[in-house]
Amino acid sequence: MQPMIIDVTQENFEQMVLQNSMHLPVLVDFWAPWCGPCKQTMPMLEKLAHDLAGRFILAKINTEEETQLAEAFQIRSIPTFKIYHQGEVVETLQGAQASSAFRDALEPYLKPDPSEELRLQANDAFVQGQYDQATQLLGEAAKANPNNFRVHLDLTKMYFQSGHLEEAQNLLNKLPDEAKQSPEGKSLLALFKFTQIVSEVGSIEEIQARLATDQNDCEALYGLSGYLMLNNHPEKAMQTLLKLFMVDRSYGENLAQKTLVEIFELLQEDHPDLVKNYRRKLQNLMF
């Protein structure tokens, strides 16, 4: 789906803005060629128009050329932004803004994203064991909105959970940095890391046997932490890494400390108290 970005003049304002706003929200950007903040904001808005293609219209008005429009709307400073919905101005923003501010202002008026409903259906199908149905629905979601990276993250996660690790890794590698740096993307990157940890040490039975022989076996302790993370026992994993830190803090070029920090970042949003507790424990051991 192509983004909708248009230049608006006095002659086409009614059609391009007012009439179109009866179907989709229209974000009007009042700008000028000499305006520094305008030049900074424009690429951000155009990217947002790509990300939300088909869900809103970006209308640009050059106030140097369209002086009548600027006067009619009493534009005293630029950039100024107005959101039209159902023929009326519903939001006004002034000055340079973060992309999230524009997205938040548009959110109540955006046309629903069909890919999101398909994502929910796909996840329900996967939970019920309908793997083929789930992947088919995600394929439809990707066609409905190719810019929704959550669709591809969902597919990566399904590949991972169903044991198709190579496919999952290849798909994740192809995703943009925005996807990889999202909470879902960071979680998947961590899963691959812990899978690698386990694969290098062996099965859980082998790990347990080694620890029964030597409870301070550093490699086995590190492998156990990976196994615990993969099986959704983050607190036990952190306990294991703290023990490894106490046994040999320099093991594998400070792997215990580095991995703990990665787990802290992974859990910070959903489990802040747990992270605070174990961050303090690590600091006490360090100093």
Results as ranks from 00 to 15, higher is better:
Glu11His: 10
Gln257Ile: 15
Leu228Ile: 10
Ser162Leu: 08
Ser115Gln: 04
Asn216His: 12
Thr9Gly: 01
Glu205Val: 09
Val90Pro: 00
Lys243Glu: 08
Glu200Val: 08
Leu165Met: 10
Ile78Asp: 07
Asn216Cys: 02
Tyr109Arg: 01
Pro183Phe: 09
Pro146Cys: 13
Pro79Glu: 10
Leu171Ala: 05
Lys186Leu: 11
Gly185Ile: 10
Lys180Tyr: 08
Asn232Trp: 06
Gln239Asp: 09
Ser225Gly: 04
Ala122Met: 01
Gly185Leu: 08
Val261Asp: 02
Leu27Cys: 05
Leu106Lys: 00
Ser225Pro: 02
Tyr109Leu: 14
His50Gly: 14
Tyr109Lys: 03
Phe102Glu: 10
Lys258Asn: 11
Lys180Leu: 15
Tyr222Gly: 04
Gly36Ile: 15
Arg119Phe: 05
Asn20Val: 14
Gly36Thr: 13
Pro37Leu: 08
Ile5His: 13
Lys236Pro: 06
Met229Pro: 03
Pro234Met: 00
Ile5Met: 09
Leu106Thr: 00
Pro108Val: 14
Asp214Ser: 05
Leu155Cys: 02
Asp7Leu: 00
Val8Glu: 08
Met44Pro: 02
Asp113Phe: 12
Val8Ser: 10
Ser199Met: 08
Leu93Ser: 00
Gln97Asp: 02
Leu155Asp: 00
Asn20Asp: 07
Asn123Asp: 05
Ala101Gln: 06
Asp51Tyr: 04
His23Ala: 11
Phe245His: 13
Gln161Met: 13
Gln215Pro: 12
Glu262Gly: 07
Lys174Thr: 13
Val127Gln: 06
Leu93Ile: 03
Glu66Pro: 01
Phe30Lys: 12
Pro108Met: 13
Thr41Arg: 11
Ala105Pro: 00
Leu120Thr: 07
Gly226Asn: 00
Leu230Gln: 03
Val26Gly: 01
Gln19Ile: 13
Ala98Ser: 07
Gln208Trp: 15
Lys180Gln: 06
Asn216Phe: 05
Asp7Ala: 06
Asp154Tyr: 03
Gly163Ile: 13
Lys193Ile: 09
His23Phe: 15
Arg119Trp: 04
Ser199Asp: 14
Asn284Ala: 15
Arg76Gln: 12
Lys82Gly: 03
Ala237Lys: 04
Lys157Arg: 09
Glu265Gln: 12
Leu58Arg: 14
Glu14Phe: 08
Val8Ile: 05
Gly95Ser: 01
Asp7Cys: 01
Ala144Pro: 05
Pro183Arg: 08
Glu200Leu: 09
Lys243Ala: 05
Glu235Ile: 00
Gln130Leu: 04
Asp51Gln: 12
Ala220Gly: 01
His164Glu: 11
Gly252Gln: 02
Glu64Gly: 06
Pro33Trp: 15
Ser100His: 05
Tyr251Thr: 00
Lys174Tyr: 00
Thr156Val: 15
Gln257His: 11
Phe81Ala: 01
